[in-house]
Design a protein around this nucleic acid. Structure first.
Length: 582
DNA sequence: GCCGTTTTCGGCCCGACTGTTTTCAGTCG
C-alpha cells in the first residue's frame, strides 16, 4: 500500500465528512493528514513495520489517524470510509471536482435532487431543476454547465499542468503585464514559484498605480479563452491551453506579505500563521499586524514577514511544511544548489541514436551555457526503436568525441566531451555492452527501458545487480515514471540507494519535465543517505539542455546542496569520481 | 481530529468574488 493510496482514503473521508456537514476542524484534520502523508519521504508501511508508535511523531497524525493508517495497511480498507460511503455515495464526491461546487452544494444536490455524479448534475442543470434550490438561480445553472464542460476537458487532458507548460506561459504573461504602464512589480507565486512538478494554476501578483486598468489589461491578453471573474483587485482567466491564471493587484506595502501568502504551500502558511498567532501577531496577504493594536509591522518584503515571526527567509521550494520551519528556527536551512553551480550535463543524446542534434551542435550549446563538460550518452542496442548503438558504432561515437576534444584542445578551449553511453539494464540485471566496451567509456549511464511490470523484488535485484558490476556511474531516471502518463515501476528505492552508496553510483535527477525522476521526496532520501545526485537533462535536442532549470529547482525541493551533486564538480574532480566511484 | 512556552479544554488562517441575497453563504485559494 503506497502512501498516495493511504492519503486518498483520508482525502475522501475529509470530503465525505464535509458533505455531511460535520465539524469543520475534524474535516481539516483528515485533510491535513492526507497532505502530510503525501509529502512523507518514507513509506508508512515501512514506518509501521519498524516502529508503529512513531507514527504519532509525525505532525498532524494523532491517535485516531494512527489507528486508521494501521487499519488501512493491514486490511486494505477503512471502516469509517465504508460507513460514510453508505450515507454519501461515491458519485457525490465527483461533484466536488466541478469548479463552483463545494461540499455544501454537493450535499444539497444529493439530498434534494438525488444527484450522484456529474452526469446527473448536467441533466438537472439542463432540465432547469437547479434554480429552485435555495441560493441558486438561473445564473447558477449556466455557470455549472460551463464548469462541467471544463471538467470534461480537464479530465481528458489530466488535471494538472506540467512545469514545461505552465512556466513558459507564465513568463509570457508576466512580460505582457510588465509592459503595461503603471505596473511596477510583477511576480509569479503559487506552486509555480515552489517549482512543483505539476501546477494546478498560475498566480501572478502585481503592484501598480491603477489596479482597475491593470485588471482590464490582464483579461485582454490574446491567449485568454475565458474570463472567469474580474473584480477590482482580483481577476481569473482560463488560457487556450486550459491553464487558469489568477491576478492580484496589491499596494507596495503589502507585496511581500502577498508573495509569501500566495506562494504557499497551504500547510506551510498555516504553520507560519500559527507561529505568528502565538507571538501575538496576525498575518494576512496584506501584512503582519500586531494582534493588540492592529499596527502593521511588516509586509513590503517577504524577508520582513519571516523576520517578524523570528525566522530567516525560506526558499520557496522548501515551503511544504516538511521541517523547513524547524530548520529555519535552528538556523539549519540547507544551502541549496543553484543553476549556476551546474558544470555540465551527464545524459545527452546525439544523432548517433535518437537525438536530433549532432555532437558538435550539442557541444556548442553546452559551451554557450558556460559548462565545462558534457557526456555524450547515446542508447545501447537493446533500445532498437531509438537506433541504439552496437559496439561497432559505439567505437565511432568514441572516436567522434576524441576528435571534438582534440579540436577544442587545439583552440585552447577548456570544455570537454565525455565518452559515455546510456546502457540498457537488461531484465536479468546485466548491462547491454560487453565488459570490453564498458571499459572504454568514462561515463556509463544505466537505465531500465523495458520489463516495467516485474515485481518489486525482481526489479530491485535487477538494478542492484548492475551496480555490483562496478561499471555503472549513474542510474538514469531511477523510477521510470512519466508524469501523468506512466506510473513508476515497483522498486525498493531505499535498497537501491543503499546499494548506490555502497558501489559509488550516482542517482540521476532527470530534468525532462515529463520525468523529474528522482522526485523531491526521493531526492531528500538520497541526501539523507549520502547518495550523490546527477542533475542531467536527457536532452534529445540542443534546446533541451535548458531543461536543467527544472532539474535544479526540483533538486532544491529535495533540499539538495551543491556538495550532493556530481555534476556541480569541476571536470577534474568529476573524472576522478567517475573513475573511482562517488 | 490534533495540539499545547497562555491551554489536557477549547481553540483551530484569512479575505475576495459570485450569485444570490437585502446582509450573506458558499467557494476558492
Amino acid at each position: 500500500m503506497d502512501n498516495v493510496e493511504i492519503a486518498r482514503f483520508f482525502n475522501e473521508i475529509s470530503d465525505l465528512l464535509e458533505i455531511k456537514g460535520e465539524n469543520p476542524f475534524r474535516v481539516r484534520s483528515y485533510r491535513n493528514a492526507a497532505l502530510v502523508i503525501e509529502g512523507l519521504t518514507l513509506s508508512l508501511e515501512s514506518i509501521v513495520e519498524k516502529d508503529e508508535k512513531s507514527l504519532e511523531d509525525i505532525p498532524g497524525i494523532g491517535k485516531s489517524i494512527h489507528e486508521k493508517i494501521v487499519e488501512i495497511i493491514r486490511t486494505n480498507g477503512c471502516e469509517l470510509h465504508e460507513e460514510l460511503l453508505k450515507e454519501v455515495p461515491q458519485g457525490v464526491l465527483e461533484l466536488l471536482k466541478v469548479s463552483g461546487i463545494g461540499p455544501r452544494k454537493a450535499g444539497l444536490l444529493y439530498k434534494k435532487l438525488g444527484i450522484q455524479g456529474v452526469g446527473d448534475l448536467e441533466a438537472a442543470a439542463k432540465g432547469h431543476k437547479l434554480r429552485d434550490l435555495p441560493g441558486m438561480g438561473e445564473r447558477s445553472e449556466e455557470k455549472i454547465l460551463r464548469a462541467i464542460e471544463d471538467y470534461k476537458t480537464i479530465k481528458a487532458s489530466s488535471l494538472r499542468f506540467k512545469l514545461s507548460v505552465a512556466y513558459p506561459r507564465a513568463r509570457g504573461y508576466i512580460e505582457y503585464l510588465k509592459k503595461f504602464k503603471g505596473v511596477v512589480q510583477v511576480e509569479a507565486a503559487g506552486s509555480l514559484r515552489r517549482w512543483k512538478e505539476t501546477v494546478g494554476d498560475v498566480d501572478i501578483l502585481v503592484t501598480c498605480r491603477e489596479a482597475a486598468a491593470v485588471m482590464e489589461h490582464f483579461v485582454k491578453y490574446p491567449d485568454v479563452k475565458e474570463v472567469v471573474s474580474k473584480g477590482e483587485t482580483k481577476a481569473t482567466v482560463v488560457l487556450k491551453s486550459g491553464l487558469q491564471v489568477d491576478l492580484r493587484a496589491l499596494e507596495k506595502k503589502s507585496f511581500g506579505a502577498a508573495l509569501q501568502y500566495f506562494t504557499g504551500s497551504k500547510s506551510h502558511n498555516i504553520a507560519v500563521r500559527d507561529r505568528a498567532k502565538k507571538m501575538g501577531l496576525k498575518i494576512s496577504e496584506y501584512g503582519v499586524f500586531s494582534g493588540k493594536t492592529g499596527e502593521m509591522v511588516a509586509g513590503e518584503k517577504e524577508e520582513d514577514v519571516y523576520r517578524a515571526v523570528g525566522l530567516p527567509w525560506i526558499a520557496p521550494e522548501l515551503r511544504e511544511n516538511m521541517g523547513e520551519i524547524e530548520a529555519a528556527e535552528r538556523g539549519d536551512l540547507p544551502d541549496l544548489i543553484e543553476l549556476s553551480d551546474i558544470k555540465g550535463d551527464l545524459h545527452v543524446h546525439s544523432t548517433f541514436s535518437d537525438g536530433a542534434s549532432t555532437m558538435e551542435e550539442l557541444a556548442e550549446a553546452a559551451m554557450g551555457m558556460g559548462y565545462e563538460y558534457m557526456a555524450v550518452t547515446d542508447h545501447s542496442k537493446a533500445v532498437g526503436i531509438a537506433h541504439g548503438l552496437d559496439e561497432k558504432r559505439l567505437e565511432e561515437v568514441i572516436s567522434g568525441v576524441e576528435a571534438v576534444n582534440r579540436r577544442l584542445e587545439k583552440k585552447g578551449v577548456g570544455f570537454r566531451l565525455i565518452k559515455g553511453a546510456e546502457v540498457d539494464i537488461r531484465a536479468d540485471g546485466t548491462l547491454d555492452f560487453s565488459e570490453g566496451a564498458l571499459k572504454k567509456l568514462d561515463c556509463v549511464v544505466g537505465a531500465v527501458h523495458s520489463g516495467f511490470t516485474m515485481t518489486m523484488e525482481d526489479m530491485t535485484r535487477r538494478i542492484i545487480k548492475t551496480m555490483e558490476t562496478g561499471y555503472l556511474n549513474v542510474l538514469a531516471h531511477p523510477t521510470g515514471r512519466l508524469i501523468g502518463m506512466r506510473e513508476p515501476y515497483e522498486v525498493d528505492m531505499e535498497r537501491v540507494m543503499d546499494a548506490a552508496k555502497e558501489y559509488g553510483v550516482a542517482l540521476e535527477l532527470n530534468s525532462f519535465p515529463e520525468r523529474l525522476d528522482l522526485n523531491d521526496a526521493h531526492l531528500r532520501l538520497a541526501k539523507d543517505k549520502g547518495v550523490m545526485v546527477a542533475i542531467s537533462t536527457d536532452a534529445h535536442h540542443a534546446g533541451h539542455l535548458d531543461y536543467v532549470i527544472y532539474g535544479v529547482h526540483t533538486a532544491r525541493r529535495g533540499w539538495i546542496e551543491k556538495k550532493n551533486v556530481l555534476n556541480a564538480r569541476g571536470l577534474k574532480e568529476l573524472m576522478r569520481l567517475l573513475k573511482r566511484g562517488c
